[in-house]
């Protein structure tokens, strides 16, 4: 009888396990869902960072959208042209060229350099802060500094320093997630081949800009005159560079009396 005491549970559990296993195997066969074989192939080709820069919730969602024909193959800014070409090969279509970009914060005033309207003590994210009288800075276009862009960056490329966001150009993949997250819209996607940015977004006149922060573009038009190819125009008291024309000569950066035209990624040194 003692032998049976050991054998019965073993037999029953072997049977139970076997039956469950068999049922699951049958169920897997019967309930099999036909998936598009191209989707796993495309997932393989995508970077897998799930940054959401393409507008889909992640790489596999993007792959599904391409397979359904809802999305183009050239939306992955992180992978750039090589990934687009591989996706195009899977789908059997032509891949366009993707110009690689990187994000730049168009504000260069740290908190101590900006004039404050009030002291913000609310929820620690930029969207909430913006809703309260457009943020604590006097400058309407100043960095809020609570890091909503850094929070969405899947690559850890954005660092917060004394109330100012800074994008590490080495780590930035140009996915554009921060660009969409910034409630102030002061993040610009700049082509990687270009080196210079106007690191300010203030459209106020010179007097008000000076009042709001110790940096900031005052719209003096010196850069406009110095630029030999006519790539810089000043509209609404703010200089902006046309990257199709810019030749990276750097004349504007040397000429700028406010030192607001800077090399990408070097904002912190100015």
């Amino acid at each position: 009888m003692q032998l049976m005491d050991i054998l019965t549970p073993i037999l029953w559990f072997a049977l139970l396990g076997g039956v469950f296993g068999l049922l699951l195997a049958i169920a897997a066969r019967v309930f099999a869902v036909k998936t598009d074989p191209r989707i796993p192939q495309m997932e393989e080709a995508l970077p897998g960072a799930n940054c959401g820069g393409c507008g889909y919730s992640g790489c596999s969602a993007y792959a599904e959208a391409i397979a359904k024909g809802e999305a183009e193959v050239n939306l992955c800014a992180v992978g750039g042209t090589p990934v687009a070409q591989r996706l195009a090969a899977v789908m059997g279509v032509e891949a366009g060229e993707i110009v690689p970009h990187r994000a730049v914060i168009l504000c260069s005033a740290e908190k101590s350099e900006a004039t404050m309207k009030y002291l913000y003590e609310g929820a620690r994210d930029c969207v909430s802060a913006t809703r309260l009288g457009a943020g604590e800075r006097l400058c309407e276009k100043g960095c809020i500094g609570l890091g909503s862009c850094a929070a969405v960056c899947a690559f850890g490329a954005i660092k917060m320093k004394n109330g100012l966001a800074w994008v590490d150009p080495e780590l930035c993949t140009g996915c554009g997630t921060c660009f969409k997250a910034c409630p102030k819209h002061i993040i610009r996607m700049v082509p990687v081949k270009n080196n210079y940015v106007v690191s300010c977004s203030s459209t106020e006149n010179g007097k008000l800009t000076r009042l709001a922060c110790t940096k900031g573009c005052i719209g003096c038009r010196i850069c406009e005159k110095k630029c030999e190819v006519g790539a810089i125009t000043v509209t609404d008291n703010l200089a902006s560079i046309n990257y199709d024309l810019c030749t990276n000569c750097g004349a504007c950066a040397t000429a700028c009396p406010r030192h607001i035209i800077v090399t990408v990624g070097k904002v912190e040194l100015v």
Partner: peptide
């Protein structure tokens, strides 16, 4: 075999959840 209830239930629940997952994905 009452003394083996815990392990039997773990087995049953794991199999059940797997089965439900397959079933739901299809139907």
């Amino acid at each position: 075999l009452e003394y083996l209830q815990t392990i039997a239930f773990i087995l049953a629940i794991a199999a059940l959840v797997q089965f439900i997952e397959l079933f739901l994905r299809r139907f």
